[in-house]
Design a protein around this nucleic acid. Structure first.
Lengths: 201, 201, 201, 201
DNA sequence: GATGAATGAGTGTTCATTCAT
DNA sequence: TATGAATGAACACTCATTCAT
């Protein structure tokens, strides 16, 4: 009984891992379910025992990957004492950037999935919502609370948060993956200085 | 002779316009060449006389659309006298944002195409390059020259430019199309203030 | 021991009942074994312990249902005294028509199954034979015996019987289920009058 | 131009003929589109240039075949003078029975298709309607008019017509194809005598 | 005996591309 | 040049059947 359940978990994980690799290397639209099952070493029908279709498996992957990353970042930030909120926030940003620098596959995947939202009309809301709800929401709650405690007096915390996240996301993607306009380590000081400016009254 | 050439231009333009509309409304992957030729009112084979495939026509469209927009923005900025560079730069940004607010189809299209670069491995370089080369390069040349003249003393003008462009691009997309986190008109003051902070020594 | 046998009977019956309902509501080709076991609440493998395939269970159903109906009709006709054979025969016909009017599901099922015979080459003989042998044969034996006793002097009782049965079957099906060309109660007098004409010397 | 159209007609006809043969020999549900195109010697995609799906081609076939048969029967009946209506009507019936005896494939096909109506819920109405409208309607119009002229005084001509058609249809099918209960030539006198009885006041 | 996870052959359908006209 | 009929590889998805537990 337990052995069966275990084998099932194994199969599901194998499918998730295989899909992850293929989505990154070939793109989602170019990846077929045939590709996934072939690489995962299972029969076609087996895929449908675990996932409804290609977008279902992608959805599951996105959620697991992003939530994990954000949770780790926040958890890790609790270990240290900061002189102010900005320092703590930059620590979290730095944690995420470092994680994505070391796991470029993950970076590609997250970006590609967000693009599916941009692309595919009927996923826009669903995906964006999932992402907002589960991943960045975590971070925003914490951002708002701490900004208040530190009396930063941000006129609109949500907009400030939104700007920083989008700035970090879009610039680091290009910097990490293409070293453009400069490699990430060279870019970091400029970025963090800019974030400080944005948070400074 | 000239009439034939004209008819050809007409056909090419009709195909471009039709593809543009379809790419926006249905997405690129969901648009078939059959759709394009049907709506354009030409035969299937005719498409292949003008374009290699779906991605070829998309490429042509992207370049034409973005270069035009940026050129207009810069040209328009020459009409006025500014007290400093920041004012002129914000004018250009504002021009582009307004243009995209009024032509949401264009906004969607530019974004979707950039996403294709993110997506599809073998387009990444080509598209990004095209875009950088032809469209934003125009703007950056002007940015650098004027920043120098104004003695802004930016430690690294390219990085600063990169950050601003990415910030504007990613946040305005969401704001204009989804009013999220706030509508564009409400968002503008925050954005411009942030850009000023970034440019301020 | 006996309890196990009973449980088995129960399972078989449950499968038969479920299949019957599904065959009627969805049609035989549209009903999958998955549907049957899901509705019956048993595992997929269990089906194959009791039946060879979909057509096997259908075959069993047809026989049980039709034989039962004809037996009831004949048995019921024994309770009354008739002035002649025609009266008794019409009584039996009437009994069957009434039964099928009240159980339209049964009517649909019998007809649909007969059609499978028409349809599916390798069932043609088997089914028709089964049906002839087990169900209408019962009735014909009785028809012939009584027709002799009554000195109807039918030149060919088998052909007469065949014509009447087919006439009743095909017209009542449409009349009961679709009220076409008229509802069954309105149709009955015409039908019985016609049967009398056919039996009349 | 004309050559292309001709080739198209040829292809369509080839598909229709092939489908007809397969529907008869294997049944409709057992015939796949792959079977049809393979036997017809065209590519899979070609099928979809001419027909929407399997049921579309079947529908076209049914209509063409049945309407043709009934029209021929009626047309042929005009060539002769009859002493009364019953004689003319029996002539038409005889014409149809002879045609179907000689073209058993056609008989099978017509019956199988009518069964699809019985089978497949969402074709019931459409097909029955098509059939009624286009084929037997022709015959009924003529039946009614001539029955009036001949002062047959049928209490309900529609019901009488319905009974005769169903009787002929269901009994001849078995007789022609299976010689059951007797071969068609042996059966005919019984059938025609019965029809006369039914039409007799 | 009963289960249900796993299989993979098979289906209908789409669509980029070709090429004879 | 322009056409659009024809192609056939490719796809997502289904489901009867098997078999280890």
């Amino acid at each position: 009984m337990s052995k069966i359940k275990e084998k099932q978990r194994e199969k599901e994980q194998k499918l998730l891992d295989t899909a992850f690799d293929l989505f990154i290397s070939k793109g989602i639209h170019e990846t077929t379910i045939q590709d996934i099952v072939k690489d995962a070493g299972v029969a076609k029908g087996t895929f449908y025992l675990y996932f409804r279709d290609k977008y279902d498996i992608m959805n599951v992957l996105t959620l697991r990957k992003t939530v994990t990353l954000f949770e780790e970042a926040i958890k890790s930030s609790h270990k240290i004492n900061y002189k102010n909120f900005t320092e703590q926030f930059l620590f979290i940003i730095d944690y995420i950037i470092n994680a994505l620098s070391e796991d470029k596959k993950l970076l590609k995947f997250i970006y590609k999935n967000l693009s599916v939202g941009i692309y595919n009309t009927h996923f826009q809301t669903e995906l964006k919502d999932n992402f907002q709800t589960n991943a960045s929401k975590l971070l925003f709650e914490m951002f708002k609370k701490r900004a208040d405690e530190d009396e930063l007096n941000l006129p609109n915390p949500q907009i400030t948060f939104f700007m920083i996240i989008e700035l970090v996301g879009s610039t680091c993607y290009t910097s990490i993956l293409f070293n453009s306009p400069v490699p990430i380590e060279e870019y970091k000081p400029y970025l963090y200085q800019t974030i400080e400016k944005i948070l400074r009254p």
